[in-house]
Design a binder for these strands. Structure first.
Lengths: 96, 96
DNA sequence: CCGTATCCGTTTGGATACTG
DNA sequence: CAGTATCCAAACGGATACGG
């Protein structure tokens, strides 16, 4: 839970589950997240070995992020959690 | 993730997975959590339909909490997540 | 026993401007 | 493009005192 803490951490992992994304793509995917927060998030996940960062020296330079094997395992559990959560949410809507 | 937000929310679900617990038991289980925070946490989870609250009019009165069916499903996903996380943690320790 | 109320410090995240 | 720096507001969480 400590790894997943923060309002946007799960989103980052979520949008990386399809493969590599660059900084701006992630920012657009998530929507309404400031560069500062996204950077914090990415640095934290990088330190924890969940994502990998690779700088391509093109012009203009882009930086790509992807899940490490560890990140993919974590993502699997996260997907499972989201799945359960959405199912429960649907049930609650039906009741109300 | 919104449901699981907060430093102690996951702990509450975690310690309720074995069955009913009263307020004080939960406080001892988790350790070093103030009554205020625990109450916040319990109220939030109650509103979200994850746990159920039942007041027994004994003397002194005690209040019992348990997971709802929805809470149990969520707990299952959480257990799975914890399982993955611990496996990853062990791997990292072996590498370092 | 099970909370609620209040105060207060810390952390978090957003807005904005700026750099290589 | 991909950040970094600064400032600021809101949320979070701990301590303590008190109430039903």
């Amino acid at each position: 839970m400590r790894v997943l803490a923060g309002a946007w951490t799960a989103h980052v992992i979520w949008y990386l589950r399809g493969g590599e994304r660059c900084f701006t793509e992630l920012q657009l995917d998530i929507g309404r997240v400031s560069a500062k927060i996204l950077t914090n998030c990415l640095r934290k996940l990088e330190r924890e070995g969940i994502i990998a960062r690779s700088r391509k020296s093109t012009s203009p330079p882009t930086v790509w992020y992807c899940l490490t094997p560890a990140g993919q395992e974590l993502c699997g559990a996260l997907v499972n959690l989201v799945d359960v959560a959405q199912r429960l949410k649907r049930s609650q809507i039906e009741i109300s």
